[in-house]
Computed example of a mutant assay.
Amino acid sequence: MNAPSPQAPTPSRRRRRGSSRTAQPVEGGRLRELGLSRLQQRLLVIGGSVVGVIVTAVVLAFVISAVGNDFVPERATAAAIVTQPRPDTYKGWNSPKLFAPIERNTADPAPLTLKEIFPVRTLKEGAITLKLGATKLDATCSAAVWGRELADQLTRSGCTQALRGTYTSADGRYVAQYTLFNLRDTAAANELVQSLTAGYRGGWPQPLGQGGRAPFSSSGYSEGSGNAMGHYAALVWIGRADGADPGEKDDFVSLSLAVRGAERAVFRRVVAVKPAASPS
């Protein structure tokens, strides 16, 4: 009797093309200081305002560092699967020094408003156009999330506001949600985005539905990322509308960059608190 042939090893999951695989944003500056190639510089349209320059530099660095990153977090195991929608992958980044002027909420005490964070109905990046759907502001931050540990952490972090906005691409291919938490200080924001590296499968923002339909499901594929910005913590959630894995024609990089256009309000607050923090 012939001995059974050894079972072939299961190939590791390959990196999905078009997936954002987000990496750490770095402190802004001029494009040449970022070491960008001419091609990378041509991908960027710099606005004339101080805020536009700061936003572009930081966010572009975030995206460029993501391209070519081959790290692929494993999907949730069967034991970790829950009925609540949450991303399949997550990466969190601490607050850059650029946001030092708003390190504490006492330096930036004015409450956020939905109109401030979601002032326009359309966000555009490359070939992707996102249209704003539902928005919501919760004064009780635990009401905007599921997961007891996350809700308790928000309470300990002195969270006073949670703002959510959902987007759908003009062609109906993509969905996205942006969530911004107003916390006590940078330490609390850093701790939140980093703790979700291990905890996002057990706690995440509630999907904000519109017309009785939620943008994300527990069975579909999606990606999440977290960024601390001074005393704020932002969570980005993106995916295909049909819940399928991203394919060769899917541009999750531009999708991530587009939805983060909501962060312009935070940059404006930095400039308002300390105008000298803007680049010359």
Rank of each mutant, 00 (worst) to 15 (best):
A176S: 15
R213M: 12
D152Y: 02
R184K: 15
S195H: 10
R201S: 01
G202F: 15
G203V: 04
N182G: 11
N182L: 08
C159K: 08
L154N: 02
L183K: 03
T168K: 14
P207F: 01
N182C: 08
A189R: 08
W204F: 13
G212W: 11
L180R: 13
Y167F: 15
W146D: 00
D152T: 05
A189N: 12
R184V: 02
L208W: 03
E191H: 11
G199K: 12
L163V: 12
A176Y: 13
Y200R: 09
Q206R: 13
R201T: 05
G158C: 09
D152F: 02
L150P: 02
T160F: 00
G203F: 06
A188G: 07
Y174T: 03
D171A: 10
E149C: 00
G211T: 12
E191S: 14
A162D: 03
Q153A: 13
G211L: 03
A198S: 08
A176D: 05
P205D: 05
Q194L: 15
R213S: 11
T168L: 08
P205W: 06
C159Y: 07
V193A: 02
G202Q: 14
D185W: 10
T197R: 08
N190H: 11
D152E: 13
L208G: 06
Y200V: 00
G212F: 12
N190A: 13
E149T: 12
Q194S: 15
Q161V: 05
R164N: 11
G147Y: 05
G199V: 11
Q194N: 15
G147A: 01
L208V: 02
